[in-house]
């Protein structure tokens, strides 16, 4: 499939597609982070994670609308505000969902799968009723449009770089929170051994609620990033949940670095192959490779080695 291109063209194609994949990479990283945090903490697979992302996307859309009609002078600066609001909205909804629904099901992990799936259907219909079935697009501020031309043939989209910066900052923030803060120490203790964490004086229920809210809030940030690569509709989140599971499993659950490496590999492979093949064939090859690697390394790319 490379035969039709010259070497110089191929280099530019790989570079351009690589940079184009950065936005996808950002969305994957943020989604997988949230999902992995929640799964690692309480063994809940949040099927509604995509809908929490879409909530973030709708909040971003609402914020851009508000700024363009009420504060047009500040429109250039709306995006950081939107990210913050998206995080808060998704985190608040996440906290409420944990309190109303999830905490009653901790002893029945399979039921949480059903319950969160049901929640995702409810949320999709809620979005349809509130925002309408038509997809909405977010208008980006001028400074985020366009691209840097590195050479004649290679151009880098500015919004891709911006979004990637945000997701790496978020990942760094999560890392610091998990490994350098008192709260993170409690989370890791609960992840390792929940009954024992209670028996050293950690309020595990409180840790659960905050963790669930944080995971959903990060999905909200992913939603903000998502508005750069796709249009926001009630069911758009569903398309991303499977890929996100793939990223988490491939990276090795509970490994932050593994999640990032795996998101990078999968998004870049997909983005590069999509240029040469159709989108679905690109996905088939990505899946085949991931399945193959997981057969050899079931624990994922990165897993910590300790004596138990």
């Amino acid at each position: 499939m490379f035969a039709d291109y010259s070497a110089a063209e191929l280099t530019s194609i790989f570079a351009m597609q690589g940079f184009a994949g950065l936005s996808l990479f950002s969305v994957f990283v943020l989604m997988a982070l949230g999902l992995a945090i929640i799964f690692g903490q309480m063994g809940v697979i949040n099927m509604a994670h995509g809908e929490f992302m879409i909530l973030g996307a709708y909040v971003t859309w609402l914020t851009s609308g508000f700024f363009s009609s009420h504060l047009p002078g500040l429109f250039a600066a709306y995006f950081p505000v939107a990210i913050l609001l998206a995080f808060l909205a998704s985190a608040l909804l996440g906290g409420a969902v944990e309190w109303l629904l999830i905490r009653h099901l901790y002893k029945r992990p399979l039921d949480t799968l059903l319950a969160t799936w049901g929640l995702s259907l409810i949320l999709q219909q809620a979005y349809r009723s509130i925002f309408g079935a038509r997809e909405v697009g977010v208008r980006m501020p001028d400074w985020m449009m366009g691209s840097y031309a590195i050479t004649d043939m290679i151009e880098v989209p500015i919004n891709g770089l911006f979004v990637m910066g945000i997701s790496l900052l978020t990942a760094l923030g999560v890392y610091l929170l998990m490994y350098r803060s008192t709260w993170g120490r409690k989370v890791r203790a609960v992840v390792q051994n929940r009954p024992m964490a209670g028996a050293v004086g950690i309020n595990t229920q409180q840790v659960d609620r905050v963790t669930f809210a944080l995971g959903c809030g990060i999905a909200g940030i992913a939603g903000s990033a998502f508005t750069m690569i796709g249009s926001t509709g009630p069911t758009a989140g569903q398309l991303y949940i499977v890929d996100t599971f793939l990223v988490v499993v491939f990276g090795g659950a509970q490994s932050l670095l593994g999640t990032i490496a795996s998101a990078f590999t999968i998004s870049q492979a997909q983005s590069t192959m999509e240029f040469f093949l159709s989108g679905s064939m690109a996905k088939v090859y990505t899946l085949l490779v991931v399945v193959g690697i997981l057969m050899v390394r079931p624990q994922g790319l990165f897993a910590s080695r300790i004596r138990h």
């Binding site: 008192t182 024992m196 964490a197 050293v200 138990h308």
Partner: peptide, 26 residues
């Protein structure tokens, strides 16, 4: 204060972090 059978320390956390989890109570 509880020291369980089989010790149940948090094996992926450092020694210092293990002791620090106990500080949650005080």
């Amino acid at each position: 204060g509880f020291v369980p059978q089989g010790r149940m320390i948090f094996s992926t956390m450092t020694v210092r972090e293990n002791i620090e989890t106990g500080l949650s109570a005080s």
